[in-house]
């Protein structure tokens, strides 16, 4: 039995996942071994089909690995999901059009049986956290895409899970909005001390946000490089022009290129 205070929050050992498709088996994950410690911000970067989203979905118990072991908070992913150990943010905000912003954020709380008073207090708190306090009574269609995505992050934060899994949450947004949301996400991470798993296509986004960058490559989906970022935890946007930042970005790019050379 490992000591739970230092044990990794997420631990994958020799994980394999093969999808059976009409064109034969697709090896989505091959021998993925990775430990994520508490409070880390881990980005998964790689081209389409490298298995980064699949890995996130395995952590969330939305996909079943074919072989290998994975634990989340020391439990199986299913037990962790049942214990509501994580909040998940999808590529699209996926807010319910028939619920107000507050109603959407309240959705997980209703399902998990929080008291009415607790629901209201939590909704207010997380909407403030994502800077949407004035929009509680608006319907999703009255908000911009960036605001909708922030609302969906608030929804994932509402029940205060220690782990936040984010699958390209800002992929559909423009560069300017994305920068702003990245900044806000870092501030939120600093305040809440959550463990974050973050899937992205964007090298600057991965380097700017992460304490650990996992570079993946496709066919079969595997990890080609794991970079522990030397950047400090507090990061102004200007840090992206520093030599350290550029050096890490360069290493990520090299890792992505190496993965492609195998083709």
């Amino acid at each position: 039995m490992r000591d739970t205070t230092t044990a990794p929050v997420i631990s994958a050992q020799a994980l394999n996942l093969t999808f059976q498709t009409g064109d034969g088996p697709v090896h989505a994950l091959k021998d993925v071994t990775l430990d994520i410690a508490k409070g880390e911000f881990v980005s998964f970067i790689g081209p389409s089909g490298c298995g980064k989203t699949t890995f996130l979905r395995v952590i969330a118990d939305l996909e079943q690995p074919t072989s290998g072991t994975i634990t989340v908070n020391g439990m199986s992913p299913e037990a962790a999901r049942m214990a509501r150990a994580y909040g998940y943010v999808f590529q699209a905000a996926g807010l319910y059009p028939w619920r107000t912003i507050a109603g959407n954020v309240k959705l997980p709380l209703e399902i998990m049986g929080y008291s009415k008073a607790d629901q209201a207090a939590r909704v207010e708190k997380v909407l403030e956290l994502v800077e949407l306090s004035g929009f509680a009574r608006k319907f999703p269609w009255q908000l911009s895409g960036g605001m909708q995505q922030r609302a969906s992050i608030a929804r994932a934060l509402a029940f205060d899970a220690d782990i936040l899994l984010m699958d390209e949450p800002f992929g559909a947004l423009d560069e300017i909005v994305r920068d702003r949301l990245n900044e806000q996400l870092l501030a939120l991470w600093a305040r809440t001390e959550k463990t974050i798993g973050f899937v992205t296509h964007s090298i600057p986004e991965a380097v700017y946000l992460s304490t650990k960058i996992v570079v993946m490559s496709p066919r079969p989906g595997r990890i080609t490089d794991v970079i522990d970022s030397p950047l400090p935890r507090v990061r102004p946007l200007e840090i992206r022009d520093s030599p350290e930042f550029i050096e890490i970005a360069h290493r990520v790019r090299e890792g992505l290129r190496a993965g492609h050379l195998d083709d």
Binding site: A60, L62, R81, R84, F90, G94
Partner: peptide
């Protein structure tokens, strides 16, 4: 599928998926 997956991440029961989604 995404909306159904979202419900699954909340460990929502079949009845809750029906009533809320």
């Amino acid at each position: 599928q995404m909306q159904l997956d979202l419900m699954k991440t909340y460990s929502a029961s079949g009845g809750q998926v029906f009533a809320k989604l």
